[in-house]
Design a protein around this nucleic acid. Structure first.
Lengths: 151, 151
DNA sequence: CTCTGTGCAAAATATTTGCAGGCTC
DNA sequence: GAGCCTGCAAATATTTTGCACAGAG
């Protein structure tokens, strides 16, 4: 148990020290919030959750998010509501999300056949010769939320 | 030529009369702008283009976009910059976009193999049993813009 | 003439920036 | 102690809303 705790602790501090960022309460809390969230969080979601632990300011949250994002500690995701959402950066590179419209829980996906189909399709385009990136997000109802919809 | 012009004219008026909306200068101009644009346009893009033809107000543009969207005359698209963009509603149902990061030109795509791959993938999800929708946008450089990037 | 649509102004929402003081290293 | 971070407040950007008047049907 102690080992597990220490390991988790290391994970929090590591990204900060690695990038020569100062370890502050606000930054630790923000990382903690993102690391433990099963959902993608907006800046305001993060602001509220962080403030349950430590007093912080929206400006600080926004600045911290920018800093972390440009250093690759976290990733931005644009869903269909116009708000930027954030998640801890995945080491495993390219992936997409399935988002529950009931509770917001997120499942990560990385599907070779889909990527291959996209690649094939891109070769058939009339006006384009180079595709540099793509966004793909799925929306559905997770197994825990299905019962609620049946009621 | 006259027939073509009349047909175009009919296309502008038709969606408005069909939904019992009053035909005003602002609405005609907004439809004209969207119909003739090779790009997806933001509210502000539309505001500026409309105002080259007729004097209009941002509030009117926003209200008109909401009205048209809820009646299915136009579609909203969320790209990766947080701004909602609009296009004339396509009769052909489900489709996606390829957007040139150079000039913004858009090509529509509707690819059966990709949709099939997505469908297959959705069956493999651990936490989800129902997928209701998805967003998919590709970004690249169109053939006209490729030379500019080589310079 | 009636009622929808518009312009103007103010409010609401989301994000950014300047500056002085506080905290990490 | 030096310089990065933060809190506060004000600025900016985008979208929404209230209201009185204008214009389409």
């Amino acid at each position: 148990m102690i080992a597990v705790h220490m390991e988790t602790h290391q994970l929090h501090l590591h990204p900060l020290k690695k990038h020569k960022l100062k370890v502050t309460k606000s930054r630790k809390a923000l990382l903690q919030v993102l690391e433990t969230s099963p959902q993608l969080l907006s800046a305001d979601d993060i602001f509220e959750k962080v403030n349950k632990h430590v007093a912080s300011d929206r400006a600080t949250i926004y600045r911290t998010l920018h800093t972390f994002e440009s250093l690759g500690i976290i990733d931005q995701v644009q869903l269909n509501d116009g708000l930027l959402r954030y998640e801890i950066a995945h080491e495993h590179g390219h992936h997409h999300h399935v988002v529950c419209t009931g509770c917001g829980v997120v499942e990560h996906i990385s599907d070779a056949p889909t990527e291959k189909a996209l690649h094939n399709m891109s070769k058939k385009l009339k006006q384009f010769s180079v595709i540099t990136e793509h966004t793909l997000e799925l929306f559905g109802i997770c197994k825990k939320c299905v019962p609620k919809h049946k009621v």
